[in-house]
Amino acid sequence: MKPYNKIFRLSLQQLFQYRMNIFMFIIFGFLPLLAMLYLWITIYEGKDTIQGFSLQEMITYVLLAKLLEVLLLPDFHWSINTEIRKGELSKYLVKPLSYSRYWFARNLAVRTSHFVLAIIPIVWIIGSMKAYTLPIQQHNVLLFLLSVLGSFILYFLMYYQISLLTIWFIDVSSFFFTVDILLEFLAGTIIPLSLLPNWLYEILKYLPFSYLIYFPTSIYLGKFLHKEIWWGLCIQGTWILVFLLTSRLLWLWGLKKYDSVGA
């Protein structure tokens, strides 16, 4: 694990040079959120609950979902895309180094830097929305953190596999955009998935997407019984195992196809 530890630290060092950039990125990432919050407050006028969500719960949901997204959603697929297209993948392949672990370490560094730089805006938002937000119940804290960890790994594996598709389809940028948008919706970042029609919600429960954002956020809000949480964690874990396997296969298959372009 030592080289990956070093890669993590080097990445942080590198990211730190662009701290202003990242900071602005996070600030602007939060801007649409203000519009969303305002929208919900208007929708709730004259109503106490919508589909079992009080206004406070809804605001907490939207805030926390966005926050988790800022902290967990990877963006390395663009870099991998470039590396494969330009044949730069070659420089990793000739070293005794695992490409997936390399990117895991880098992703962890990026997420960490976002976390550090997001603290100030987060504290500010939470402070100013204090009247609308709810705390987590103590007995859910550990389970919540566990589900966030699962989500982090799941996000990584999903985006890692999507990135590898570049080996087959060189021009995947429009596909990447579609995936980003689709995932944001299916993960429950925009609205709680339980607001969707019941049949869709029942299906989504067994797909990996809802375990990215909706699941941890609902645990935080205490929407699930303990039994349901454990069941959810099992599904999340199963998807992680499945994706570990499929990404390994995809990698081995892709290497046969990889052309190592250039010069």
Binding site: K2, S90, P96, G262
Partner: peptide, 25 residues
Amino acid sequence: VVLGQKNQLWWDLSPVETFKLHQEI
């Protein structure tokens, strides 16, 4: 391996950092 038209050093960091990473790798 040195591919003259590709770069294996970390662009934003000093060469020593890459060397030390290679020590680990």
